[in-house]
């Protein structure tokens, strides 16, 4: 993994995730802004996984490959699927859950860095 890229992904997902949770606390639900944040975090997660795939093809493999694949797959699936599930409830809990689905990307990226070796 490229450390700088991982830190960018962690940074984006922490800012977006906490931002959405902040909106939930204020009981606000601006869907266009939430969607923009979700897209940014999802794009970052996809770029990171694609770069890891390119590295793997070139022969750089993670030490714990199975764990890495599990986390990588989860990191790109959780924001879209999780956010749709979360935002289908129009309460602050639904908004908060969408924020958590973005924070999951940060946690998974940290774990991916650990298992890469």
């Amino acid at each position: 993994m490229i450390d700088v890229l991982a830190y960018v992904v962690i940074g984006i997902s922490v800012v977006v995730g906490l931002g959405i949770i902040g909106l939930a606390v204020l009981d606000r639900r601006p869907l266009d802004r939430i969607a923009a944040g979700l897209l940014a975090a999802e794009a970052a997660a996809i770029v990171q996984v694609l770069v890891a795939v390119v590295q793997a093809v070139r022969g750089e493999r993670p030490v714990e490959a199975a764990t890495f694949v599990g986390y990588a797959l989860t990191s790109v699936l959780v924001p879209p699927v999780g956010a749709v599930w979360a935002l289908s409830e129009k309460t602050k809990w639904g908004t908060a859950a969408a924020g958590v689905s973005v924070l999951v990307v940060a946690v998974l990226t940290l774990r991916m860095q650990q298992v890469w070796g």
Partner: peptide
């Protein structure tokens, strides 16, 4: 409510 969050974490 909080269950929305709980189901999300279980799904992850």
């Amino acid at each position: 409510g909080p269950g929305r969050l709980l189901v999300l974490v279980y799904g992850v």
